[in-house]
Write a protein that binds this DNA or RNA. Structure first.
Lengths: 267, 267
DNA sequence: TTGCTCCTCACGTCACGTGAGGTGGC
DNA sequence: TTGCTCCTCACGTCACGTGAGGTGGC
């Protein structure tokens, strides 16, 4: 009494979907007219609507088939589970939205606005764009790795920028992008870094744990090292003077080791 | 410097996904080690994270590729669209949850609790379970067809049940499920239906528009007709007396036609 | 007769996952 | 030497969609 398109219309699905359900045995094949057309009745509409309610809720069709054959207890257990999944899916989408809403334009994709603000502050201080690009990439990786600790880290970075030495470091690093690997001014950068490390240790800010794994810190180091010809030279000088690392500079094999997490001088 | 599993780990994706991105050209193939292993750098991590942010937001990978190559204006337009889609997806899931929360057990799948309450009232009146099953199937179809009008229709149905004639009709229909098609008591049912129609017309409740298409009403009629052997006989008697239809009974070719929507006597 | 619906294959799509069969690295 | 990682195909999965090529219904 109903054609396939009428059936599909009453249940708000496509004709192709109905035929698909026949193929996989989810919806029984109805009788055929003399010309081979499928002829449905109201019961098929009801069954198809039931199928869609479950499928719309994200239940795989194989599970839908099980549930349609299940008893009431099993069914209501399943509905509770489905509801929980829907709920966590909603949470996920909300998190995604807030992530998106904090995004600005192309360059800053995947960055919370607080990081964008920090980068803007660097820009307003006249720091070289290439240095800012390095910072950005570092923060993108950190944000993916330990999203919960970003704000705390940023607060410290902002505080560090109050020290004129730190601003000076950033400026010098910008210039250093164009230096050859044997430029003698590498020592000046090393001097600046050493002064900053001493004051960080003195103020106790060098002791905060950043929660980054050693491997990840190595990655950040490698990224920085590859960014400028002078970088390996600076690192070598610091090594000679008893420091190691780069993202996370610390005294080399010190007899009184500090917690391995001074402020990230560079990224 | 990074293996494929390290890269995948830093960006929180599977190794298979990374290889898939290489295959479709979304992520450029990196250099290989002597033994053929892929070797990634920090830039690959950043790019992969960017890809995942977009893909997690439901952007198709082909679109991700476009967006990564797009300028800022095009990109931010796209982010707005993505956000809108996320929002409507959240709305959809919320609607699904409230639909699910109103579901009870297996039999009542796809039915709001108000309909379940109506069916429970019929049950408490001692109506035959088969009649209640017919009612349920009818409401499932109506709920899928005109979900917005369900509550209004139910209010009227509840009011109709205050008429002892209506309760009597339901009881008699329950008995009639077992009657043979030539049972003379078909005329009693027709009498009852006629009385109810006259009083509905007198009270003006027969004039409410139910918003159902003619084809859909025919489907409901056919469903009822097929449910019991006696049903066609009752319909024939009513036809003789100048009424037509079943779900929506109305005077046949009346010179003063009323709005085609008396209360649904049966479903 | 025309256009619309219906039919059945077979293959495509999307974003990977699975598994076979093999090699390299510590 | 053992187990782990990596490699490349090729095929599978999920829920349909697309399109060819053909027939029936009004």
């Amino acid at each position: 009494v109903l054609s396939i398109s009428q059936l599909a219309g009453y249940a708000c699905v496509t004709v192709k979907a109905v035929r698909h359900y026949h193929r996989i045995g989810l919806l029984p094949e109805p009788a055929r007219s003399v010309s081979g057309y499928r002829e449905y009745d109201a019961a098929a509409v009801v069954l198809l609507i039931r199928i869609r309610v479950l499928a719309d809720a994200g239940v795989p069709l194989a599970r839908v088939a099980q549930l349609l054959a299940a008893d009431e207890a099993e069914f209501s257990d399943a509905v509770v589970q489905i509801d929980q999944r829907l709920n966590s899916e909603i949470d996920r989408l909300h998190a995604l939205r807030s992530r998106l809403s904090r995004l600005t334009a192309g360059d800053n994709l995947a960055l919370p606005s607080t990081i964008v603000a920090y980068l803007d502050r660097l820009r307003s201080l006249g720091i070289d764009d290439r240095i800012i690009g390095l910072e950005r990439d570092g923060w993108i990786m950190i944000a993916a790795q330990v999203p919960g600790e970003i704000e705390e880290m940023l607060t410290q970075k902002h505080a560090e920028l109050e020290d004129p030495d730190m601003v000076q470091l950033y400026r010098m690093l910008g210039d250093a992008m164009d230096w050859r690997s044997d430029d003698p001014r590498a020592a000046d950068i090393a001097d600046l870094l050493e002064r900053l490390m001493h004051s960080a240790i003195a103020s106790g800010t060098a002791e905060a744990d950043d929660g980054l794994s050693d491997g990840f810190v190595e990655l950040l180091d490698a990224s920085t090292l590859a960014s400028a010809p002078i970088a390996p030279a600076v690192l070598a000088i610091l090594n000679d003077r008893g420091w190691q690392g780069w993202t996370r500079i610390q005294p080399l094999a010190s007899s009184t080791p500090i917690d391995p997490s001074p402020p990230e001088e560079l990224r």
